[in-house]
């Protein structure tokens, strides 16, 4: 039995993962098939690589275009986006170490048994905190303050609820693991999990088997991933592509106009 950082990789986990990806890729396939029905021209100008790189940094990663309308919206979306990507990368790295690398390799030893483990702890805490912070703002905006521009439908609620369950179950699992392993050297590195543990202790909540929450975390995450092509979260793929295409078109148009700009009068 292979081991991930804090739990065993069971056959059920692999089967569920395969089912998740079957649904995910079926959704992606159907979506791409719909896109491919479009026969009109996509771009009318020369592809602007430099403009796309710039847009990728400023508008996809940093999402600065949102700040000009609302700092709080930028904070919310940036935290959810970066938090989610960071945690996805952590999961992928962990799966890579557990499932692809030989168990006795130096990399696995470093990350699963030695100091590298603490890096993974901190990694999860930072991005998990960002995701949680973003989700809290999202819930407040949408359901408490009811921002006028929002029109909530099932897809919006489903995305937020699923992400909240994934995030909270991750922290709760971490809290119970830390509560059960009092004195463990990685306590300080799981600072948010530790804070949750202290809240549970103060509230008199008994220590539960953290693996229950790991499974909740994993199952909901799989359901969430399977739903991506059918849900609002598909924008995570479609929106960046559109941002880049738009940047390229604008740059191409600008360049074309600069070459031909009113030459008959300005050049006469």
């Amino acid at each position: 039995m292979r081991h991930y950082l804090y739990f065993e990789a069971t056959v059920a986990l692999y089967i569920l993962t395969v089912i998740t990806f079957i649904f995910f890729f079926a959704g992606v396939f159907v979506t791409l098939a719909i896109w491919r029905r479009g026969k009109a021209k996509n771009l009318y100008h020369k592809v602007g690589i430099a403009a796309m790189v710039k847009a990728f940094i400023l508008n996809v990663i940093l999402q600065l275009q949102i700040i000009k309308f609302s700092f709080i919206r930028w904070f919310m979306h940036f935290c959810i986006f970066i938090g989610f990507i960071g945690l996805l990368a952590l999961t992928a790295w962990e799966a890579f170490l557990a499932d692809i690398m030989p168990a006795n390799s130096a990399l696995v030893r470093v990350f699963f048994n030695n100091g590298g483990k603490l890096i993974l702890d901190v990694w999860g805490e930072i991005f998990g905190t960002m995701l949680l912070a973003g989700l809290i703002v999202a819930v407040l905006r949408r359901y408490v303050f009811r921002a006028a521009q929002l029109d909530t439908i099932l897809k919006d609620t489903a995305s937020i609820v699923l992400l909240l369950i994934i995030t909270l179950s991750g922290f709760i699992a971490e809290a119970f693991r830390l509560m059960a392993a009092a004195g463990s050297p990685d306590l300080a590195y799981s600072f948010v999990g530790l804070a949750f543990a202290k809240i549970f202790e103060a509230g008199g909540i008994p220590v539960m088997n953290y693996k229950v929450f790991v499974w909740i975390h994993g199952l909901v995450a799989m359901f969430f991933i399977a739903l991506i092509p059918f849900s609002k979260m598909w924008h995570a793929f479609a929106s960046p592509i559109e941002v880049l295409l738009d940047a390229s078109e604008k740059a191409g148009k600008h360049e074309a106009e600069a070459h031909s700009a009113q030459c008959s009068v300005s050049c006469s």
Binding site: G38, Q149, A238
Partner: peptide, 24 residues
Amino acid sequence: KIENLSMRQLLELDACTRCGECSN
């Protein structure tokens, strides 16, 4: 029929997150 749309335009329909900035 959607053949007169481009792939990009069909992608754009999926790229809308319904954030509602346009409604402002």
